[in-house]
Computed example of a mutant assay.
Amino acid sequence: MSEEFEIKNKVASSGLVNFDLTDLVPKGIRKGIDLKDFLYMEIILKEKDFREKVAAINPEDYRNQYVYIYNSADAIVPLWAYFLITARITDVTKKVIFGNKEDLEVLLMHNAIQTHDFDELKGKRVLVKGCSDKEIPENAYIELVEQLKPIVKSLMFGEACSNVPIFKN
């Protein structure tokens, strides 16, 4: 084939580095614990009953998992209740938080972005992948820009064929 008809991949030769935030999503099972299940009639915390139910938790059910503790009941629960559950399982879990699954995902992505080594992207033109099969918290994109703005040459969002320029240094 002659050179004038040669097909060239302009994206590959552009020096553009693709970055996919889903690569930073911590792998592991997410599991919730609803305090409602530990309350008398699902609305009242009776300390003795509560402590018995917490003692009955098998920590192995949460081994190497990301756990979020929440309260779906319309009940006021003292802070020490969360302490008891956390103390029961924290030795075997990867992480325990108070909140819902979305809160857990925000925190996990925050930690992943804050601890990731972005040195490989210094001075590069970076394209952050826009489409994903995993749900990424919006806050993760904001934190990513904070991390990349001081070090990359330029930042774009989307796909190579249709991206949105964010900034150039």
Results as ranks from 00 to 15, higher is better:
S154L: 08
M1F: 11
K10N: 13
N9D: 15
F83M: 06
Q65W: 03
R88G: 03
G32D: 04
I33N: 02
M156H: 15
I85R: 08
A73T: 09
D49W: 12
V128S: 02
R125C: 01
D23H: 06
V96F: 09
N100H: 07
L39F: 12
L155R: 02
Q65S: 15
N100T: 11
D103W: 06
E6D: 04
D37R: 01
D23T: 13
E60Q: 15
N163R: 12
P137F: 08
W80S: 08
E47R: 15
P150F: 08
P26M: 12
D74S: 14
L121N: 03
K124S: 10
A12I: 05
M1N: 05
I44P: 00
L155P: 04
L84I: 00
V128Y: 01
V54E: 04
V152N: 04
F167A: 11
V128R: 02
P78A: 06
N111L: 10
I89R: 00
Y141R: 10
P137W: 00
R125V: 09
D133V: 09
I33G: 01
K46S: 08
A87L: 11
Y40S: 07
F50D: 04
K53D: 06
D103L: 01
K168D: 10
C131P: 00
I76F: 12
F19T: 05
E120V: 11
W80T: 07
F157A: 11
I136H: 04
F5L: 15
A112L: 04
A55W: 06
D119T: 14
F118Q: 05
I85Y: 03
I69Q: 08
E4V: 13
I97F: 10
E120F: 13
F50T: 04
I85D: 06
S2V: 01
L45Q: 07
D117Y: 03
D119F: 10
L24I: 11
R30H: 14
P150Q: 06
D20A: 11
V11P: 07
Y82L: 14
F98M: 09
V25R: 06
L21G: 02
N139Q: 11
H116R: 14
L104I: 00
L144R: 04
Y68E: 07
N169Q: 14
D74K: 14
D91K: 15
I33V: 14
D20C: 08
Y70L: 15
Q147M: 13
L107T: 04
M1V: 02
L107G: 01
D37T: 03
K168L: 00
I43K: 07
A140G: 04
P150D: 09
K8I: 14
M1W: 02
N58W: 12
I89M: 05
K31H: 02
K10C: 12
E3K: 14
I57P: 06
K122Y: 10
E3L: 15
I151R: 01
N18T: 13
L104P: 01
E4A: 13
N9T: 07
M41D: 13
I89F: 05
I85K: 08
A140Q: 02
G99H: 05
A73M: 10
K124A: 09
I43C: 01
V77Q: 05
Y68F: 15
K101W: 02
A12F: 12
L127T: 01
Y141T: 03
M41P: 00
